[in-house]
Nucleic acid binder design. Structure first.
Lengths: 227, 227
DNA sequence: AATAACAGTATTGTCGACAATTAGACTAAA
DNA sequence: TTTAGTCTAATTGTCGACAATACTGTTATT
């Protein structure tokens, strides 16, 4: 049972609903990266007026999925090697920090739950190698809980609300499903142990390495598919 | 002559203008921290309709100056010791990172400009001890340039757009004008030297210390004024 | 007296239309 | 041919009104 962060609350308003739909569409590439966004077109497509749509666009800009220029319109963000590098560079620092804080602030039962989660993933993962979806979800769930464990509201907001979907977009559109799965599990386990031992410094280090490895993995994919 | 970041472009639309006004009002305490925000009232007060006002509110939420609850309304953020701690904790990590990257990526002439800026501040500062405004501005300008020097778009966005005004709000409303001025100058100088020497690790460390000192200074003020 | 249901009021969410601005096509001059 | 300018069309920004939801004070019931 996943923990609920405010950002994942049930969609209340029409703007909430359309936000989720457009978010998914952009992340999955259904709305092509780099393409222009037409407010009238989207309004017709999702059958609502421009008011809630613009509200949704404002939030999409907030999580870096679109870029808006006053009086000119919005474009879906374009994926680039530079952007990927900057994003993962930042993640290394931020999630490392989150890990260190988690080692200091997570309650014992939270750590126990996290361990249970990992075990469950490991067992569920009589790894049909193909099904990268669940691996992806499991990976994100682990990171998610560690971040929440930091208990720093601003840090949580940045990682879970602002950067989360962009990270997913890079992963999905670059076809992240390499053979890094089992190794990632080991790394998660090591990080968990560091947190359980209240060794923030080590947890920080391990998380940085973990993300750096993940970044190199994606970069490799990126090279293969053709720069 | 200050460098222009996208976030500081001239206000084009009515939403931009009212955003700046409300932002200032909140930061300066003109709109009291923790108070409720009434859309009709603000719309009347600034003489525009609710559409651009809501656009402005969306951006205010983005920089953590207000908190919105669906169907219930928005409140100005409440200042708290916990919030201050979380904010400065994050700044330590992020600006440390920015410093390290700046040491790697800043062009030589950018560094020269930064040095000129510091010298100018030092001379302009035949320190009328009272005028904390210019000291404040100078301090922010220095940090600002270092952050831009990191060349990491996401990092820049977070520090300059999302956290900047909240930091100012804490400083202003807690009356930051202590006797830390001259020491801050020395610290800036040391940081600059580390950057000029391309010593990212040292620059990181010094910036972290600098911000930690700044945080302790504010906390002291906070204790005196009454928890 | 305390609590629960209810009505009335005020606020937020959404809509359709209009105004302001920009992008693109076309024309005219160098 | 290129460039500058203009005009048209489309898009974004803004407005006022309506619908849906949440708050408040009252009433009724236990």
């Amino acid at each position: 049972m996943p923990i609920l962060h405010p950002s994942l609350r049930a969609p209340i308003t029409a703007a909430d609903r359309v936000l989720l739909e457009i978010q998914r569409a952009i992340v999955e590439g259904d709305i092509v990266a780099g393409s222009k966004i037409s407010e009238p077109e989207l309004a017709k497509r999702f059958d609502l007026s421009r008011a809630p749509l613009r509200e949704a666009l404002a939030r999409l800009e907030r999580c870096h999925l679109i870029e808006r220029i006053p009086n000119a319109g919005a474009r879906v963000v374009k994926l680039s090697t530079q952007g990927l590098l900057s994003l993962y560079q930042l993640r290394e620092t931020l999630e490392g920090m989150a890990c260190r804080l988690a080692a200091e602030h997570m309650a014992d039962d939270e750590i126990a739950e996290l361990r249970a989660l990992l075990d469950q993933h490991l067992s569920t993962q009589r790894v049909r190698e193909g099904e990268s979806y669940y691996q992806e979800a499991g990976d994100l769930d682990f990171h998610y809980r560690v971040i929440l464990g930091s208990k720093n509201e601003y840090l949580i907001n940045i990682l879970c609300d602002e950067l989360y979907h962009l990270v997913r977009m890079y992963r999905v559109q670059l076809g992240m499903n390499g053979p890094r799965v089992s190794r990632a599990f080991d790394e998660h386990k090591a990080i968990l142990n560091a947190i359980a031992n209240r060794d923030g410094e080590l947890a920080d280090l391990l998380m940085r390495r973990h993300i750096a490895a993940s970044r190199r993995n994606i970069e490799k994919q990126l090279d293969q598919t053709g720069n």
